[in-house]
């Protein structure tokens, strides 16, 4: 597989504060990769380095084979970026906003129409952006990022403020893009979204990578295998199935007919994420 993005001991310091601490990461072409972490973990700072807005204090970032610090001009025409807050020309219409960027990327007008249609903004395309809702603004950002059919797309909380229908549409679009070979790196706090569409996940805390794997691997490794049991008489107990003694005790209770109800705690990424982050201490 071809490597689309590689971070080697990437470090970003703001005076004494270390925002990104010797981060190593490798993302392959066509991956849909999520960068997770609590607030202040270093996700957005990493994206700022990758989008050339911030020079790293140490280490290297290679994107599509080029060193971002030295050769960003050759990388940026091949990137798409959806920032965490919208940045449109408010006084211009949605269409004019896209046309400007289409001209810069030498994309044609048909592509503008396609992208507007992709995010279902056809009807509002000729209204000034200042009248758009938060969700419409984010859709326009997504349309702008895909205008030039980039090889690598960064998305900073792309589905924030999107309604359920739009968020679902958006996930479908991302999955199709990844299948077509586009590499996607996203940051989000929506674990269901990550679980649904991402191929791999890295969890950051205090600028350091503390977990890496597929969503299934992380769930497998970090979710507690617990069942909640309601016993005769109304008492409730939880049994950890990874513990042999607990498994034997539960079997005996079932055999004795003392179990009135039993519910398995489903494996979910959110629980795994909380477990991963909490193991690292407060």
């Amino acid at each position: 597989m071809t490597v689309a993005l590689r971070l080697e001991a990437l470090t970003v310091r703001y005076r004494d504060f270390v925002a990104v601490d010797a981060l190593d990461l490798e993302i392959e072409k066509g991956e849909l990769f999520a960068l997770l972490g609590p607030n202040g973990a270093g996700k957005s700072t990493t994206l700022r380095v990758l989008t050339g807005q911030l020079a790293p204090s140490g280490g290297r970032a290679y994107v599509l084979g080029h060193d971002v610090g030295r050769d960003f001009a050759r990388v940026k025409p091949r990137l798409g970026y959806v920032p965490d807050r919208d940045n449109h020309f408010e006084e211009l219409t949605g269409r004019k906003n896209l046309e400007l960027f289409a001209d810069l990327y030498r994309a044609d007008r048909a592509r503008v129409r396609e992208c507007l249609s992709l995010v279902e903004l056809d009807d509002a395309a000729d209204l000034p952006v200042r009248g758009y809702s938060q969700g419409m603004r984010r859709k326009l950002l997504v349309a702008r990022a895909f205008l030039h059919q980039p090889e690598l797309v960064y998305l900073d909380e792309p589905t924030a403020n999107l309604d359920v229908h739009s968020a679902r549409l958006f996930r479908r679009v991302l999955s199709e893009l990844a299948r077509a070979g586009t590499t996607v790196l996203l940051t989000t706090h929506d674990m269901a979204e990550v679980d649904e569409i991402c191929t791999r996940v890295a969890v950051l805390r205090r600028g350091r990578r503390i977990a890496l794997g597929t969503p299934a691997e992380l769930k497998q490794k970090h979710t507690q295998h617990v069942v909640d049991v309601v016993l005769a008489g109304g008492a409730e107990r939880a049994f950890d199935l990874s513990d042999a003694a607990a498994r034997r005790e539960l079997a005996e209770l079932v055999e004795a007919g003392r179990v009135l109800g039993l519910k398995s705690r489903a494996q979910d990424l959110e629980a795994a994420f909380v477990d991963i982050v909490s193991r690292e201490g407060p």
Binding site: Q53, K76, N87, H88, L104
Partner: peptide
């Protein structure tokens, strides 16, 4: 302030 300048700078424009 709106971040539009950053968006332009991320485009192919040098």
């Amino acid at each position: 302030e709106r971040g539009v300048l950053a968006a332009i700078a991320l485009s192919p424009a040098s």
